[in-house]
Design a protein around this nucleic acid. Structure first.
Lengths: 187, 187
DNA sequence: TTATATACTGAACATGTTGTTCGATAAAAT
DNA sequence: ATTTTATCGAACAACATGTTCAGTATATAA
């Protein structure tokens, strides 16, 4: 694969067209049910050209994924739990892509990779947190799994429901849930 | 499909063989990569017979899934968050099946259905909770998504890591995380 | 602008999977 | 023993995947 002179206009044009086509299609139907054939037709690209660039459909999707989620999950001054405001903002900006990637009918491979990235990042933050006058209520591994699952779930729900809250609100709620739990005693 | 005299010995034998074969295979390789052909060979069942019983591979898997998770997520006397001890116990008993269903390399359709069932159940419990001198810190929908994701994530992690804690311990940790959050201040 | 390099096309191909059909056979139920 | 029906197994069409190759179009660089 990989003809790969990334600066050649034709290469950029082809890759872009394929990526756009996949995203467009994935907003119309289940990711699993999308065939390479359909992508080719939508993008007006030849079959052999596709395989000159990507190994398969999944690799095409992953090629559009940022390498580091780190930049979007940050620790802010007076918070204990990492902030995910930047993450939701980024999702908002690239909504169709993330919908394709992690929506209910999205790509398993996308969710899987996303989970890895977020897990990595969150685990690091949690571990650094432990040296900071705070202790976890359960083993780090368990806390990390709990949080990753919860966060991914919220992300997905937010995408599926057309982003019903602002990124700031989502972050606030995530903070509250993670830090204080889901329940508040009535005074 | 559906020859469907469920009492016929042959039917029971065939269905059982197919189900066992799928589970066995899914412990050896990724669910996605398992073909009907392989299942047939493993189960020693004819191709046409398979399609007489199930629409496809996914339906075969789902046929082994309990209709109601309700029985395994219960509300106990002095807890606020529903208990998931029974759920983990049930997973322990049917470990290979649940590994196939929801392990990292498990079936997307299985996870998806599992999510629906647990979501339903958890939402109901949360709503009934609200009438009971407790309030949620965020909208019910958000809390439910958060909890479902977190729980599924823990379940999957627990299966992937060969059940490193007892069901009672998993329940305790889930309770703590959900009720009080992940962090505890050092005294 | 011309020359060269190379990305793209499109069709053909082998391979593998899916789901269906049907007559023959085996094994249940009665 | 007879009837009913589940299973077999082979053949089939439809479709998707990934590869190959000669011809064409189009960047880039001189």
């Amino acid at each position: 694969m990989s003809s790969a002179n990334k600066n050649d206009r034709r290469v950029k044009r082809t890759r872009s067209a394929l990526c756009q086509a996949l995203i467009k299609l994935s907003l119309e139907k289940r990711y699993d049910s999308i065939t390479v054939q359909e992508i080719l037709e939508e993008a007006n690209v030849g079959r052999s050209t596709f395989y000159a660039h990507y190994l398969n459909k999944d690799q095409l999707l992953l090629s559009g994924m940022p390498e580091k989620i780190s930049e979007y999950i940050t620790i802010e001054k007076d918070t204990i739990i990492p902030s995910v405001k930047g993450l939701f903002e980024h999702m908002q900006m690239a909504y169709p892509f993330f919908k394709a990637l992690m929506g209910t009918d999205g790509a398993k491979v996308g969710l899987s990779r996303g989970r890895e990235l977020i897990h990595e990042q969150l685990l690091e933050k949690l571990e650094s947190m432990e040296n900071n006058s705070f202790a976890l209520s359960v083993p780090v591994q368990v806390a990390a799994e709990f949080l990753v699952g919860a966060l991914l779930s919220l992300m997905r729900w937010w995408l599926d429901n057309r982003m019903p809250y602002t990124p700031a609100e989502m972050n606030e709620m995530f903070q509250k849930l993670a830090k204080q739990g889901i329940v508040v005693k009535i005074p």
